[in-house]
Every structure is written in structure tokens, then in C-alpha cells.
Nucleic acid binder design. Structure first.
Length: 517
RNA sequence: GGUUCUGUGGCCGAGUGGCUAGGCAAAGCUCUGCAAAAGCUUCUACAGCGGUUCGAAUCCGCUCGGAACCUCCA
């Protein structure tokens, strides 16, 4: 059973084979830190976090590079070439780098809330100006870029002509062909500097008001948007690496231009597999700056936004994202989020119950259980029950589904089929003996691996030792009151805790448990 | 206009030829001092019209609707 990933480049699922055995190089386009991250940003970073985690789970050593775009782009190319970051900085009267730092910190905070594993390397565009200049010089030397008024442009037409012959036309990723694009040239284009409309900037001459600027062989300026990813991925992952990821909206022009730049320098497609996540939509429309329909992550967590009925915990959002496939759009809605909140809670509680289940003693042929026999699905204690069979099937499908282009939604569905079995055992509807010790053991280990290690889910709220102690005491008091049929006291304890957001639940056998809202 | 997608039950969403995911909501039942939780059960859909096929949500065609990209965007 091998991993298959959908490669945007070929538009089909392909068997994943890393370039260097046992190692994976993965580059994901990171955020532009000119503003706060919104809900839409959560999608790629959670998605690629799970991909990262799963690759590690499969035993790969992964170098995960995700950049921070802190150099700024054009507000509106062709008109006043203003730097986005510099513009905002003027408005807020901050140093550009102060602004960049602020939003970088906020981004890291949000990523931490989502329990994402930080990338192996997180290079910044401003920290790699030299590498970008060197790369641009190579492209010029090879004749695929030209200088105009202190700016440098990539000659798309020449590239397309030459590289089409080796099967790498411009548009290979997005399926566009250059002729079509030349025909759909827009009116407002008044950039005489460019030879062709489709040419893109590698280096931009900085107008006097532009704050962010660096010296270059072509005068003071700043790098074009696309070159940073080419330069940094090349530096840290080499001429060709395994996975390049990002949002679907980056396919064109960003990734297309990256491919072209890198191809000129290295004569090969930079990445073997291109993985693109789909968008989070709101009322069927992409959440994005241009639409003014974004909900910032801090607002999601606090509930402070007109569109939000309530705050949503980062784990609820993570779970929400995992419930759909990463290549489908995911529609935001309070009902959907609330559904995810409840669902995640139910799943987590079943998971906690599972950890407390103890099977029949592990005395198989009076031999100690080995790892191999624990994970084996062969019969150990005679006949296998239907439940045992079902649990094994559901568990084995975890890997199958993840190997099929990271289908987290199907894995979660299976977990929800396991939940009633787990709860049934707890409530004694299902005798624990229905499960073979090996099956129970596999159930515990696999659920742990997938929920915590691969999906990166964690408990929404930690009670802490002291709170735990207090609650245990209150539950003991309530049990005592119930035994004495002192329902006034027992109800008071329960009701007042409920008002504080702590739900007490009576168990079948007189036990009690709690959950914090 | 071009490129690429997409339309699944009250809501969110898996699913690419037969075995009719899953979650949330709703209803009933069981358990329970009551409640909650949990368990069981019910609600069973694939935009429309044709076609291919023994058989289609799944393939093909058309119609209608929606989206992303073509300008910064995860």
C-alpha cells in the first residue's frame, strides 16, 4: 500500500516516490505579513501540517520550508508601483520591519494555536535579497530577462518558445497557453517598460517614496514577488525537490512564474509534485482581501465579528478543515462550525474513554505479547467476533484513506464509526471480550497515532491538576449526596457547575465524569 | 472572452460505474431520582434533460446555476 498524491502538474493522482529515498523536501508558500492572517490562511497551513505529519508518520525525514514574505509587492501593478507593506506602514506610522514583525508574531501565534509543527526552515524574503539578485543575474545572463529603467523583467515569450521544445511551456501548471493570454491583454496596461504584457518583474526599481529598498546591479529597488520562492526553495531544497505546496489561487501566476524562473536556472521543473489546497469560502465566495469578507483568526478565536455567533476554538477550526478533503472548497458557516465543535467534542470524549478501557489480560498462549503479535490481525483467541472484525477493518482503512491523497475526511468518518463501539464497551452494551486483546491494543495505539500525531488534534481545554482535584472532590460530594438521596445537594452541585461551564455526567455504574465547555 | 473546477438530504461534507460515508440538526426509544452524556432507531439525497451500460450521484452530451484564476491574494 503506497501513498498516492494528486499532482496539479499532471492533474492526476500519482504514486509518491521521493527523489532521495527516505527523505522529502517540501516547500510551501507562506504568508505575506503585511496584515493579520484570516480564516482562509488556516486552510493551507493546517493541510500541509497534516501532510507533513503524515509523511513523518510514514517514516520520511522531511525538510519543510515555508517562507515569510516580508518584502512586499505592488499594490497595483502598472499604476503606482507602491509597496503594500510600505504603504500600510505609513498609515500606521510604523517602521516597515516593525509591522512585519508584528504580523509575523501574530501568524506564529495563530499557527501555534492550531497546533501546527513549525517548518524546518522559515526563510524570509528580506533575508535572501542576495540569493535573489544572484538568481536574477543568471536569468539575465542566459538571455531570459531584460533590464528597463532599473527594473528587470522576465521574457516570457522567449522562455515559452525555447522551453516548449523540452516539454516545459509557460503555462504547464495552470493549463494556460501564452497565445490566449496575449489576446486577452487589458487596456489599462501602460507599462512601456515591458516588452510583453505577460512578462513579469524579477526586480523592481524603487520610486523615491518607497521605503523598502536594496541596492542591486540595476539600481535601488526590491525583488519581484515570484523570485523569492524560487531562490529560497533552491537554496534549501536544491534544484529539484519533492513537494511544492500552496493555495490554488497561487497556481497562476505565482507558481507558473516560479517554474519558469527555476527552469531557466536549473533546466528542470523545480518540484516533482505540486499540491494545491482549495479555498475556504463564505457564502460560496472565496474569503479574501479583495472581497472584504475575511474573518481574522483572532476574531475566530474571540468571536468578535458580526458574522460569528460565538467564538470558535482553534481545534474546532482544525477539525472543521480536516472534515473535508483539502482539494474541495470548504464553506464557512456558523452551523457548520458549531457542528464541528460538537462532533470534535464527541470524538475526543470517546477517545478519552478508550484510553481508560482495559481488556482481558494479555495471556496469549502464556507468551508475552510482542509488538508484532499486538499489531497483527490474525486470530489469537479462536473465533473473531463481528465487532472485532469491524474494528480491525475500520482501523486498517485509516492508512488506506490517508494514502489516497490524504483523505482525512474518510478517516474521521471511520473514527465516528468506532466511537459507538468504544462507548458501547464503556456502557457494557458490548462486552469487552468481543474485542481481542490485540484488537483493543491496536485500537488504542492507532487512534492515538492518528488523532494526536497525524491530525495534530489536542484537547481543547486542559483542566490542570488543581482543577482536576477540585472537580474530583465535588464529584465525590455529589455521589455521596446521591447515595443519601439528597437530590437538593446533588442537583445544586451539578447545576452550579453547569452554570460555570462544567458538565457532570453520571455513568452507568455509578461513576461520574465531567467535561469543560 | 480564455483556463480550471463545481452543483450531494434542513446545514456541513465523503464518495468516480453496482455493496446506497460521516458529522450537526430534528424525531422516537433505552438507560437515569431528574437531567446531561451515551446507546439504539428514524429521516436516505445526488441541479435538469438526454445518452452509454444489465446497472450511473459516479462516464458522455446539452441546458441551467455557482466558484477560482487571467490584477495582490492561502
Amino acid at each position: 500500500m503506497s501513498l498516492k498524491v494528486y499532482n496539479s502538474l499532471s492533474r492526476r493522482k500519482e504514486e509518491f516516490k521521493s527523489i532521495t529515498e527516505g527523505h522529502v523536501g517540501m516547500y510551501v508558500c507562506g504568508p505575506t505579513v503585511s496584515g493579520e492572517s484570516h480564516l482562509g490562511h488556516a486552510r493551507p497551513y493546517v493541510t500541509f501540517d497534516v501532510i507533513h505529519r503524515y509523511l513523518k508518520h510514514l517514516g520520511y525525514k522531511v525538510r519543510y520550508v515555508r517562507n515569510i514574505t516580508d518584502a512586499g509587492h505592488f499594490e497595483e501593478e502598472g499604476r503606482e508601483a507602491e509597496d503594500k507593506i510600505a504603504k500600510k506602514a505609513l498609515l500606521e506610522r510604523l517602521e516597515p520591519m516593525e509591522l512585519v514583525q508584528k504580523y509575523t508574531n501574530l501568524f506564529h501565534w495563530a499557527m501555534n494555536e492550531f497546533n501546527t509543527i513549525p517548518p524546518s526552515i522559515e526563510p524570509t524574503a528580506t533575508g535572501h535579497i542576495v540569493e535573489q539578485i544572484v538568481m536574477i543575474e543568471k536569468i539575465i545572463a542566459d538571455g531570459y530577462a531584460y533590464i528597463a529603467n532599473g527594473s528587470v523583467y522576465f521574457d516570457v515569450e522567449k522562455y515559452n518558445t525555447d522551453f516548449s521544445q523540452i516539454g516545459m511551456p509557460y503555462g504547464i501548471l495552470s493549463g494556460r497557453n501564452l497565445e490566449d493570454q496575449l489576446e486577452t491583454t487589458r487596456e489599462l496596461d501602460n507599462q512601456e517598460e515591458k516588452r510583453n504584457k505577460s512578462d513579469f518583474a524579477l526586480w523592481k526599481n524603487a520610486p523615491p517614496e518607497h521605503i523598502m529598498r536594496w541596492p542591486s546591479p540595476w539600481g535601488e529597488g526590491f525583488p519581484g514577488w515570484h523570485i523569492e520562492c524560487s531562490a529560497m526553495s533552491n537554496k534549501y531544497l536544491g534544484d529539484q525537490f519533492d513537494i511544492h505546496g500552496g493555495g490554488m489561487d497561487l497556481q497562476f501566476p505565482h507558481h507558473e512564474c516560479e517554474i519558469a524562473q527555476s527552469a531557466v536556472v536549473n533546466h528542470k521543473t523545480m518540484a516533482k509534485y505540486w499540491i494545491h489546497n482549495n479555498m475556504i469560502t463564505i457564502n460560496g465566495r472565496k474569503m479574501g482581501k479583495s472581497y472584504g469578507n475575511q474573518i481574522m483568526l483572532s476574531q475566530m478565536f474571540s468571536g468578535d465579528h458580526p458574522l460569528l455567533d460565538q467564538p470558535y476554538h482553534p481545534m474546532t477550526i482544525r477539525f472543521f478543515i480536516l472534515q473535508s478533503h483539502y482539494r474541495s472548497t470548504l464553506d464557512f458557516g456558523n452551523d457548520a462550525l458549531k457542528g464541528s465543535e460538537k462532533a470534535f467534542k464527541r470524538l475526543w470524549e470517546a477517545y478519552v474513554v478508550l484510553q481508560g478501557l482495559n481488556g482481558t489480560p494479555l495471556t496469549v498462549n502464556s507468551q508475552p505479547m510482542t509488538e508484532a503479535s499486538l499489531s497483527s490481525s490474525t486470530t489469537v483467541n479462536g473465533e473473531r467476533t463481528a465487532v472485532d472484525e469491524q474494528v480491525n477493518t475500520l482501523l486498517n482503512e485509516f492508512d488506506e484513506f490517508m494514502n489516497d491523497d490524504f483523505n482525512t475526511a474518510k478517516v474521521l468518518a471511520n473514527m465516528f464509526e468506532l466511537a459507538p463501539i468504544i462507548n458501547g464497551i464503556k456502557d457494557k452494551h458490548i462486552p469487552i471480550t468481543e474485542l481481542q486483546p490485540a484488537t483493543l491494543s491496536l485500537l488504542k495505539s492507532k487512534m492515538k497515532t492518528y488523532i494526536e500525531d497525524v491530525f495534530g488534534l489536542k484537547q481543547e481545554q486542559q483542566g490542570g491538576d488543581k482543577l482536576e482535584g477540585v472537580l474530583q472532590l465535588l464529584m465525590t460530594l455529589r455521589k455521596d449526596a446521591k447515595t443519601k438521596k439528597d437530590f437538593v445537594t446533588s442537583d445544586r452541585i451539578r447545576n452550579e457547575l453547569t452554570a460555570l461551564g462544567v458538565l457532570l455526567k453520571d455513568e452507568k455504574d455509578g461513576g461520574m465524569s465531567y467535561s469543560i465547555q
